[in-house]
Design a protein around this nucleic acid. Structure first.
Lengths: 160, 160
DNA sequence: CCAATTTCAGAGTAACTGATATCG
DNA sequence: CCGATATCAGTTACTCTGAAATTG
């Protein structure tokens, strides 16, 4: 017959089992907040730092490419780039082969700044993974990357 | 001993080792995007859905409490609440004990809507964890929650 | 009078869409 | 002429700060 489950009815008001999307969003907010306060000391926003970080590892991308990578419109990315160019953190030079395209890369000043931010962010990462072995950290990262792939996390890349 | 599982270039690009903050942010963006397109079909934004979701599990919170939980100003939260109240998804009634405070809870309409959204989000979660055993999913969740705690993920709660 | 909550008003940021010019 | 890039312009969405009213 209808046996009443002794161990709480699976949901409703119980905080027993927060969903995975919920905890991921929660972690991102806390993490983003920590990074924000860190990079703000260098006069950067998180989106600016993220962009500079991408450029540090992948130079000579066009504005349109960067926009697709960040899932924003080309206009938004352009404005962000203009601000950073104004502060001489990056430079855009016309591609000699493809006339209209502007290739973006960090200035030495920008590279130094991103390195200092990376130090700060590395400290945050260390605090975040406190008490985890290196193997667990690697496991966590690989599982998160697997989740990204499962959701079709590829970039909408194109030609240039 | 240390068996290095030379898993070949796991990445399509030549990226060496993306940092944990980077992949977490990446997952959140992809996940948020998926949830966004899902709940938009019900006329909701992600922040609206998140708020309704919180109210589903924790009714009778005040606007100020909800604002602190979401790390936004009381004014912003108030505006969000007004819109949802206008669509009769939630109702706010003055607290009989503490005169000024408005207790917020979902209407039946709001409860039904959040349940339908939850179904969609559960499907997204299932897709995200495809290929993982239940144990791995629990492990992932517990590690993410651990990271949140390590970064001081508590809410700035107060009295009412 | 003070502290907390709610709310009205104005401002700023960051993203968007639309339209335009250039280049291959 | 077409496709892609970059850019100028207007707009929307969201959150913030400031100030005021209410209540315990």
């Amino acid at each position: 017959m209808g046996r009443t489950p002794r161990t709480a009815p699976t949901t409703t008001t119980s905080r027993a089992d927060p969903s995975l999307p919920y905890v991921v969003a929660r972690l991102d907010r806390v993490l983003r907040r920590a990074i924000e306060t860190a990079v703000n000391e260098f006069g950067l926003s998180v989106t600016q730092y993220t962009l500079l970080s991408v450029l540090a590892s992948q130079p000579d991308l066009s504005s349109a490419q960067l926009a697709r990578r960040a899932y924003v419109s080309p206009q938004s990315m352009n404005e962000t780039l203009l601000n950073l160019e104004k502060e001489e953190l990056l430079k855009r030079t016309p591609d000699p082969n493809h006339g209209r395209i502007l290739r973006t890369r960090l200035t030495p000043k920008g590279r130094r700044l991103v390195e200092r931010c990376d130090k700060k962010v590395a400290q945050i990462e260390a605090a975040m993974t406190a008490g985890m072995t290196k193997e667990r950290q690697d496991l966590l990262r690989s599982m998160v990357m697997q989740a990204v792939r499962n959701l079709g996390g590829g970039f909408p890349e194109r030609n240039p």
